[in-house]
């Protein structure tokens, strides 16, 4: 009696194990998990559909965009991460579907260039500023003594300059 029971239990366990295997195969045929609107929107916020000009996928009302959002939903429900979904779209439709290009060269072109140009601006300003500071020490030491002694001379120079300017204008 005990041995029969044991065999029965083993057979039962075997039956359960087998059915688990076969049932899990069915589960894989339909792996969709419910995806909320919020998850779809979180990914769609980062995508741009070429049909709508410059608005993100989550705010576009056209049928094309609705289809794309459905595609996002399906990909998410298949277990893809948001990054994988975006990669998938870039692979199929090109770099224009994301807000900063995925391709490294284009990405560098987009993001680094403004900093490069700005750096040039900063360098140029720095150079000008340094030149100004170099000129200043030459004037400063001579200023205190020179001022008193040359006030008369300064006025004459000033007048000569005005005459020269006026002459140049004719």
């Amino acid at each position: 009696m005990n041995r029969l029971l044991k065999i029965g239990v083993m057979l039962l366990c075997l039956a359960i194990a087998l059915s688990a295997v076969t049932l899990s195969a069915f589960a894989q045929d339909d792996p969709r998990r419910p995806v909320t609107d919020d998850e779809v929107n979180a990914v769609s916020k980062k995508l741009y559909c070429p049909v709508c000009e410059n608005i993100t996928l989550d705010t576009c009302g056209t049928l094309a965009c609705a289809q794309w959002r459905e595609e996002v939903r399906i990909l998410l429900s298949e277990g893809k991460t948001p990054e994988q979904v975006i990669e998938n779209f870039v692979m199929r439709f090109g770099d224009r579907v994301v807000g900063t290009p995925a391709d490294p060269t284009l990405r560098a072109l987009a993001l680094i260039t403004p900093w490069l140009l700005s750096a040039l601006v900063l360098l140029a300003t720095g150079a000008v500023f340094l030149r100004w500071r170099k000129e200043r020490p030459a004037a400063a030491p001579s200023a205190p003594e020179a001022k008193a002694a040359t006030s008369v001379r300064t006025f004459a120079e000033y007048r000569a300059r005005i005459e020269a300017d006026l002459a140049a204008r004719r």
């Binding site: 000008v128 030149r131 004037a139 001022k147 300064t154």
Partner: peptide
């Protein structure tokens, strides 16, 4: 008044212009 700086300066450096 014109300051001393200006009276002693030259025209802007041709190179930078």
């Amino acid at each position: 008044p014109m300051t001393h700086d200006v009276l002693t300066e030259r025209a802007p450096a041709k190179r930078s212009v």
